[in-house]
């Protein structure tokens, strides 16, 4: 019996420290989520407007002017940016993205070059033996404007030099704090918006069409990529926050259970000790 009590006490202590850690992690994630989520929301309007403009340009006659707007003829080698988290302990966040990537790769017949972003994506790429072009070990860099610009410029370069025919991004779309789904989106070449197809649409470009399209199109692609990667980051924090909140709730529950068990065992021990004393006393009196 005393053995048992000691074991129970140790278990309670362990669950308590687990609870402390997971609760702290969920609180940290909540703060980070709020910051990143704000960034996502601020960029939403900019990104939406820019992609609207881009869709109209790509549907107009001017689309011949930029390689990003020309449809792929033969897709021989495609690039896939896989944006996963930097760390674990975030529930199924990383694994469900990787599952989506595996499924996507099965449906495609062309060669794929993978560009993992985030430490977990890099690790997964090594494990699965993907063809890796570049690796970016930190998804958090995307919050920094300069680093984000560098990353997307480097990624675009593979398309520019012709080593990739198209470019996709696999990321976890942030819908709300409790809803984030892995999706795969094509970013290059830009798919023309068929619904906005308008033969009469002729933009006036100033200073001149070529120069302007050369500024606008890469700018839009960068904004799109950054917007997606930021969502991936927001989803990571949200997933971690949920996972850690659940586990700290569980730890709390377990601690309560264990405390109850401990109390019951202690009472049982006292009862049996009292019984022993009484029976002993009874036996003495009878003699």
């Amino acid at each position: 019996m005393p053995e048992n009590l000691r074991v129970l006490r140790r278990k309670i202590r362990t669950t308590e420290s687990i609870w402390q850690i997971t609760r702290a992690m969920s609180m940290v994630s909540a703060v980070q989520l709020r910051r990143v989520q704000q960034g996502v929301e601020q960029r939403r309007a900019f990104f939406a407007k820019l992609s609207e403009i881009l869709a109209r340009i790509s549907a107009s006659d001017s689309s011949v002017l930029h390689p990003y707007l020309r449809p792929v003829e033969v897709e021989k080698c495609a690039g896939l940016v896989v944006a996963a988290g930097d760390r674990g302990l975030c529930g199924g966040y990383n694994s469900s993205l990787f599952r989506a990537v595996d499924q996507f790769l099965k449906t495609k017949t062309c060669r794929f070059e993978i560009i993992p972003v985030g430490a977990k994506a890099v690790a997964q790429a090594r494990r699965s033996g993907w063809n890796v072009t570049d690796t970016y070990a930190s998804l958090r860099d995307i919050e920094d404007t300069e680093k984000a610009a560098q990353i997307s410029a480097q990624i675009r370069r593979h398309f520019d030099d012709g080593s990739l025919d198209s470019l996709y991004v696999a990321y976890t779309r942030f819908i709300s704090t409790s809803r984030h789904v892995p999706v795969i989106e094509q970013i290059l070449p830009v798919e023309p918006d068929e619904t906005k197809q308008d033969a009469d649409l002729e933009y006036i470009f100033e200073p001149d069409a070529e120069q302007l399209i050369n500024t606008v199109v890469p700018m839009a692609v960068d904004a799109e990529l950054r917007y997606y990667l930021l969502q991936a980051l927001a989803s990571e924090h949200a997933a971690r926050m949920i996972a850690m909140t659940t586990s700290s709730d569980n730890a709390e529950e377990m601690r309560d259970d264990l405390t109850k068990q401990l109390n019951r065992a202690r009472q049982q021990r006292i009862t049996s000790e009292v019984l022993e004393v009484i029976t002993g006393a009874e036996a003495l009196r009878q003699t």
């Binding site: 403009i53 340009i57 649409l201 002729e202 933009y203 006036i204 470009f205 100033e206 200073p207 302007l212 500024t215 606008v216």
Partner: peptide, 18 residues
Amino acid sequence: AALGYLGIRPGHAPLISS
């Protein structure tokens, strides 16, 4: 705009400028 100040009134033709 890149080429100088540019005035826009309702009914303007589609335009993109830096």
